[in-house]
Design a protein around this nucleic acid. Structure first.
Length: 155
DNA sequence: GCCAACGTTGGC
DNA sequence: GCCAACGTTGGC
């Protein structure tokens, strides 16, 4: 099993929005970065766990989520009304893929970015790299365990 | 609002 | 294949 981290801008799609989604599940649409796409399309498996991260105001890890589908083409790439419309992509050869993401457990207390940076055991984590912008990223087993322990310790 | 870091595009 | 220009992300 692999572990992941999904970034979303708080005022774009927050953990509240996920909690209010049907089945507490959503399509992780709008990813337009090849590296992030490749993780979803090629590496994710149903049942993989992940962290939901708020970027923007009050950046923090706020929940545990689960990959709830195999990758499939992101329908927003073909919707001219959508901000993420991409005319280069065709039905024969879709450029952009997504997975469904399901809320497993919202953390009672968010783990703020500054708090995460202060944890020596999280050193080397992609999220904490200066200038890191990857919106879907792998989380190593040790970092996964450390974050779960921190979430638990905050009650 | 600022700005550093980054990914992508396109000319050559 | 190189690299400058550009647009975007995201913390502060």
């Amino acid at each position: 099993m692999s572990c992941w981290l999904f970034k979303s801008e708080t005022n774009c799609f927050s953990v509240d929005d996920l909690a209010n989604s049907p089945g507490q599940t959503t399509m992780w649409d709008g990813v337009r970065n090849f590296q992030a796409r490749n993780f979803m399309r090629d590496a994710m498996r149903v049942g993989d766990l992940g962290f939901f991260y708020h970027s923007g105001k009050d950046p923090a890890i706020v929940a545990l989520v689960e990959v709830a589908s195999k990758a499939y083409p992101d329908p927003t790439q073909w919707d001219p009304e959508n901000d993420h419309f991409d005319p280069r992509s065709t039905a024969d050869n879709p450029w952009w893929y997504l997975v469904d993401v399901h809320l497993v457990q919202r953390f009672a207390h968010p783990l703020p970015l500054g708090f995460l940076r202060a944890q020596p055991e999280l050193e080397g984590m992609e999220l904490l790299r200066k200038g890191s912008r990857l919106s879907v990223q792998p989380v190593g087993p040790a970092h996964y365990e450390a974050i779960m322990a921190l979430a638990k310790s905050l009650g």
